[in-house]
Design a protein around this nucleic acid. Structure first.
Lengths: 192, 192
DNA sequence: TCGAATAAATGACCGCAGTCAATTACTGGA
DNA sequence: TCCAGTAATTGACTGCGGTCATTTATTCGA
């Protein structure tokens, strides 16, 4: 039912990803062209699309991997006990996700799995992030009137909002971290 | 310094928008092709791009107009006094914004003005929505520990989150309105 | 070791957004 | 009314993502 993959297949695929990684390092994500990738990898155009459903599928791997590395770092750290800690903890993740407008757009597009069958890397990292955040909130350092999962979903909502406004000309003046602080203070430590 | 627009210009532009509106009604947003628009409008391809920076600029007008109509309706109604009212008030707006995955993607892409100089229709409607929501919260029926503007920003964040999860295979089971209710209860009426 | 079945790779081709030098239509002053 | 200057329009062309019938390589049973 499952794999019957030849060694060649894995090699080609790995080469494509490696070449793409190099190209991104050189020119950024938005400038990546599939034709450039296949040329450097020494394969035909069709081969690319035999390995990846579309260009987004490659981006999913590249960007998802980068996000996952940040989550590795974050998972190492102790659970944050204050909003300031929580915001500080997110700094590197925010940097990765907002390094280019194009990257943020891809993340938004792929962060939810379109179908159960095709959960990509980015969607998987979002699940992972959700679990990680839920664990932080289960320590009980923040609100207690709602469960940890809901707190985590709100965190994600505000994270997205802060990043979106970062790219908005009308709001770019305020730094992302400061906005996060404001949001999360109100979300996690309401004072009614 | 400003306009020197010929009548012809306005006519062509209006015709393009009218044709596009018809096409969308027939086949949906995602299926819209600029070539189909210019063919029906009886102009050349280049004319389209002389009037609109790119295809997104046309979508901005079509979708932005549809959103604006909903805001007209919402602005008529009295300020909501409960979370349930607030959620119910949003139902038509949610329907418009999530009618197609493609529409939601365009909205996310264009909801923040990329540059002050080029604030589009969708970005303008988001500003309008923000002002409207702020006015609701100024009535003081919800939280009082944070100002109305912040409440409005949170509302927008949760609105986006609810729509995003609506398109996510892993979460599609729960209806949007129900999710909104959960989020907004926690956001607007914390119970610590 | 051979040959049929299957997997991988190929590249010419297509669809569609977006460009631009050339052309046509309009305007306002003489 | 004529004509220079400007605005609007044109359509062939480019760039790039994605497809598919054909060719080439690999596997595995006899």
């Amino acid at each position: 039912m499952v794999k019957q993959l030849q060694k060649r297949t894995l090699e080609t695929r790995a080469r494509l990803v490696a070449v793409a990684t190099d190209l991104v390092a050189e020119q950024g994500y938005a400038a990546l062209r599939t034709e450039e990738v296949v040329k450097r990898a020494g394969v035909a155009k069709g081969t690319f699309f035999a390995h990846f459903k579309d260009k987004d599928a490659l981006m999913d791997i590249l960007i998802g991997t980068a996000i996952d590395r940040q989550l590795d770092q974050m998972a190492q750290k102790a659970a944050p006990e204050t909003v300031a800690d929580l915001v500080a903890l997110h700094a590197p993740l925010l940097t990765v996700m907002t390094q280019e407008r194009y990257v943020f757009d891809v993340i938004l597009r792929l962060s939810g799995a379109a179908a159960i069958a095709e959960i990509g890397v980015i969607a998987t990292t979002f699940e992972r992030y959700h679990r990680l955040a839920t664990r932080w909130f289960e320590t009980g350092h923040f609100r207690r009137d709602i469960d940890a999962e809901l707190q985590a979903e709100g965190l994600q909502a505000f994270l997205t909002q802060a990043m979106a406004l970062h790219f908005c000309a009308l709001h770019r003046s305020q730094p992302m971290a400061q906005r996060m602080q404001l949001y999360l203070q109100a979300w996690l430590q309401p004072n009614v």
